[in-house]
Design a protein around this nucleic acid. Sequence first.
DNA 1: CTAGACCTTGTAGCCACTACAGGGTCAAGC
DNA 2: GCTTGACCCTGTAGTGGCTACAAGGTCTAG
Lengths: 164, 164
Amino acid sequence: MTIGALGQATGVGAETIRYYERIELLPQPARTSGGYRVYRPEHVRRLNFIRRSRELGLSIEAVRELLSLASDRLRPCARVDRLVRDHIHDLDHKIESLQKLRGALQRLADSCRGGGRVSECRILEALQEAEETLAGPAIECGQEDCQERRASEKQPKPRRERRA
Amino acid sequence: MTIGALGQATGVGAETIRYYERIELLPQPARTSGGYRVYRPEHVRRLNFIRRSRELGLSIEAVRELLSLASDRLRPCARVDRLVRDHIHDLDHKIESLQKLRGALQRLADSCRGGGRVSECRILEALQEAEETLAGPAIECGQEDCQERRASEKQPKPRRERRA
DNA sequence: CTAGACCTTGTAGCCACTACAGGGTCAAGC
DNA sequence: GCTTGACCCTGTAGTGGCTACAAGGTCTAG
């Protein structure tokens, strides 16, 4: 089957398939004499595996590891379990973050009924002014290595005060 | 104040500040004779506004619009209200999506206790096989223009069947 | 043989930064 | 005035996970 047929079979676009090949998530397929990629049923299975994992929000690297784990049938599957549980944990953090954000925004929105002028808009005021009223520790992050980017105690070295 | 001092005052890194200037979210500041950027208190206010908005998950473009709206004090603030409410709506979608993902992953993880071998791992089986058991409509998206990328009824034109 | 659907490679773009290289500036202390 | 070294400058490239395009080549029904 051609790349287009593989795409139809799996619901993955041809450009994405080529991308997966480039990053070595999919093996290089055979080629026709004219250079077309020729795929086989095992490619369909592998790509479906990838697609489902991605739909579950696993990163490409996680998928890569799962694929590698899956290739050794005798290996204990504890690592697989761990990987999935870690991702659930990440999701919990992310969901919690978003819920906090939502709460803050809702409080913001509730302070405004949209009828006034910008000059007395509570939303804009809140964004301009107080520090503590909104947005607790919730920062939308996206990456896992999100730790303490808001580490305000980070003072590299006490320079010889060049004040403001 | 220099860019470093502005960064300290707002909790935004110097490289990010330069980035904001480049995309015209911050106005170009004055310069010293040596070329250093010189910031003033209004820059601190504007950058704090930006930072808080970003912490609430608003996109750069949304922040840009808020800033533009805020500059005209006589304008009705309905648009501000709308912008924030739209974002809350987006967050609701995103949270719901993530919760569905989490459910699917939890079901996956529950089918495995991590004690067996890869060859009988239910997680890997589930990823390899059935279509309906997992992952309903939940795809993590990130962008707002996320509509129907999984639109499986997208059939561009009926080619003269080059079957698989 | 032609039409045109499909494929090829390569490159650039998306978001919101972040990191670096290679150099220049500034002020404190001598 | 000179050294030191923290700080700043510009420009470019990288992140993740694709997506879009351009310019061309291949394949097959009719």
